[in-house]
Design a protein around this nucleic acid. Sequence first.
RNA 1: GUCCCUUUCGUCUAGUUGGUUAGGACAGUACCUUUUCAUGGUAUAAACAUGAGUUCAAAUCUCAUAAGGGAUGCCA
Length: 459
Amino acid sequence: MIRTRFAPSPTGFLHIGGARTALFSYAYAKRQNGQFILRIEDTDIERSTKESVDSIIHAMDWLNLNYDEGPFYQTKRMERYKEVIEQLIAKGQAYHCYCSKEELDKMREEQKSKGLKAKYDRRCLHSPDIREDVKPVVRFKNPESGSVIWNDLIKGRIEIANVELDDLIIARSDGTPTYNFCVVVDDLDMQITHVVRGDDHINNTPRQINILDALGAEIPFYAHAPMILREDGQKMSKRHDAVSVMQYKDMGILPEALLNYLARLCWGHGDDEIFDINQFIQWFDLNNISVSPARFDIKKLYWVNAEHIKHADNQKLAALVIDILKSKQVILNDKLDLPAIIELVKPRTDNLNSLADNIAYFYQPLTPNQEDIDKHLTPEAINLLTNFANELESLDNWTMDGLKQLIKDFCVKYEIKMPGLGMPLRLKLCGTTQTPSFDAIIFLLGKKLTLERLKALHA
RNA sequence: GUCCCUUUCGUCUAGUUGGUUAGGACAGUACCUUUUCAUGGUAUAAACAUGAGUUCAAAUCUCAUAAGGGAUGCCA
């Protein structure tokens, strides 16, 4: 049984890089009929918050990235970590270190000035300066020779010499375990078979493998996916970029569109661009993830979103749009056929907010700007609209065909071209000149509303 | 400094065992459709980081260089 996990640290919201990693991890598990696990890595008590945990879970939920187990919390597993640390100390694979921060800084500086690699010199392993007033940290005794080699499922063979590795701290002086150690114990206990994560963890992997070895554990497969960068190629920044997954919801992005777009960053399947999560799962494999980082392109995201909106079910879109319309104080009524309006309007939008804007004027016409009024609502045009309203009033065949015929006949009768009728009509009916076909608008508005608006005085 | 990762159109990618006019998509440009704005359609421009080597043949294999990123934390 394949088991993968997503292990964010709750020091902020779920960002799109994390979401993409979660997606790969999720899709791989699903593809292999395996299980996907959520684990919250909250060992850094200083920086972890409950709000972050909630927002991460909320975002996973919105994306519909469902986990089979979890969320597990590392802070609830402290006893287990302590137990394993004791084991390692008892076996001589870990040791107490009493060095102060100042001592360590001094040591590192000396090493650097000699052109050496900064690395703990193991003074506490050989002759510990045990002091009652100092609470020691615990260091892992890393192998001194040889190298750690693994076949990364994305990057290929990676080899790192043990001399490059430090005796890393696995427990702080307050007794709390650190990241690299918790990851190992958790992945072991949770029987994770495939560790899928960002490639910023490549450097941690040999340390984790060494700890796993010391524990006599089986080594899982590792797959390190490249990062997502900003449009300009720089690292994403939480201050300057829209990096929170939920910000994209606010921008009117559909979760399935965001997933689709994220999937296409560092991964491709021939010429395919638009697909849903199930299709993605069928196609996905770790070995066709590319090795280099990708830049985030907001324009393409909007295009993908537009495609998903076009293919989305109108009832489903209606539910989403109603929420947005309500938040914009639009007064809704049941006389209008919202799914039919959505069907008409959706090819002209690439996000839910503008979809809502293009629907709002069906319920309440916008206030037209003066420039448009001067241009289109001339006395002649108003006269024309009055005549048009009269013709409409006597139309019994309220169908698209009936309306089309009426409009055609009207244009012939008054010797005008379509835009000559259409533009003032749009302005009067909707308050804007940028709308879909006006025959469709009249049809969906219905006779009563159409006549009401045509007769309104606000021109 | 040392170690690790990376490099195909502006951007995302295809290119699985060396032989392609290096393909697609977004963005761009032009045109067509049209009832305004869009949608849609057609066309167009645009790339193998650099230098060696192996080979009849290299985007693809090897090496070097350069440029970017990461690690070198009692962060994850």
